Amino acid sequence: MKTEFKKSRLSLVISNKEIDSRNDVGNFHELRAYLCPPPGRFSWVLMLILGLWALSALAEEDFRYRYVSLEDAVLPPGFLFFDPIAINDSGRVYGTLYDETDIIYVAVYEDGVVTIINPGFTVAANESGTVGGAVVNDPDNFLTQAALFRGSQVELIPANTEFDYVIDLNDSGTAIVASSEYFLYKNGKTTALDFGPNALPYLFLHVNNEGTVSGTNSISSGHNRGILLDTKAGKTTQLDPLPTESDSWAVDINNSGKVLGYSFVSGGTERIGLWDKKGKFKTYFVEGTPEFPTISNFLAFNDNNLIVITSTSDGKSYLVTKPGGVRLNVADSVENMPADQKLSKILDINNKGDMIGYSLSSYFVTDTYLLQRIDDDD
């Protein structure tokens, strides 16, 4: 039986959204999306066939992928598995590596080999290879301190709670840190994030290379609203839904300043699209309709505005390349897609279009993978 994902008000998000439940190291593969701790392994909680129209669009866009199972990666001796979190434009995949004693390590995958960076867990990585996450000070109680990992160097970020971590990281090294408050951190300097009175954005916080922060919060009516903070000008813009919907989620922001998200009715119509810097929303695809009844729980995109719809009620992942109502089943463009795997969740996409994610079967991960986009000359 398939699970139907329903968006709900933020005050109910923990009980009504599909959030991955983890083993004893915590709930942290979805930290970027849900601000929970990083990924364990074996308890991942979580109909529509495209017609000839979509298939012709696929051929026109020429998206072709090579499937690489990260389960086949060469791990250091004594380690059990590698969980991917982020992929940069070089194609390096950053994630968390687990050993036989449940100690976790920041690590990187490249050319079939996983290399240890340092003890800790991964949440984000930038183009220079700096990783944001945390070190674990108390493994029994999973008490953490936010940290930046640059090769063998670890920069601990001062904070004032027992569970602090980096949420996101831009290419200049500016990090969003979650502690008793949210703040930006760079070169030893902290700047509190001020979203205005009574605003508590606690989902999907991201920072782009301009230092602009996006996120989602709950307003006085109890509905959800996307929010955009220009940290240089100190200006906050509310990202409203279209008049036809009641709620909005701002899920991510790219380096051109576009904000990815939903204008939606809980359990109903979901418009997926982009807000510009002025807060104007442009629809790219509409789901939760009789024609496209599937609904989704996660989105990713890149600086080219290539959108991935994933964690869907039909267990598939889709690409949307431009406004206009066409989505492409990612699996149809994978040349060596294993018959027993599904592209259940895409976690990240780089500017080339390479993606990382995992497959689910009966709520268990059956594979983690890298989808390498194939160029015409490959």
Rank of each mutant, 00 (worst) to 15 (best):
V135R: 08
K316S: 05
S248D: 11
D332P: 11
N217W: 11
A33T: 08
F5M: 14
N302R: 01
L46C: 13
L35H: 15
S313E: 00
A300Q: 12
V108M: 07
T231V: 01
R64I: 07
N88L: 04
L370I: 10
E4A: 12
N160L: 05
N118E: 15
D376S: 10
L328P: 11
E30F: 06
L205G: 12
N350P: 03
S221H: 09
Y284T: 14
Q372A: 03
F292E: 15
S220G: 05
R22K: 09
E60H: 11
I117W: 03
E110S: 06
G261N: 13
V136L: 00
D303F: 01
V131D: 07
S218I: 14
N305W: 00
L200E: 14
E30V: 12
V45N: 09
P119T: 01
K2M: 10
K17R: 12
G95I: 00
N126T: 00
T190I: 13
Y34R: 13
N350M: 01
G132C: 09
E30D: 14
N137Q: 11
A125P: 13
G78M: 08
N198P: 07
L70D: 06
V251W: 07
L70V: 02
F63I: 06
T283R: 03
I349R: 00
Y34P: 09
L12A: 14
G129I: 01
S11W: 00
S15V: 14
L260K: 08
Y202R: 11
N224G: 10
D194R: 05
V286N: 07
T130F: 01
K258T: 13
N255P: 08
T122H: 02
G267L: 15
E270Y: 12
T130K: 03
P76G: 00
E110F: 03
W249K: 09
S128E: 15
D140S: 12
S90L: 03
L35I: 14
A146P: 12
F285Q: 11
N350V: 04
K280G: 11
D111L: 09
L50Q: 12
N208D: 04
Y363G: 09
E100P: 11
E287T: 15
K6E: 15
S313W: 01
N217C: 14
E100Q: 14
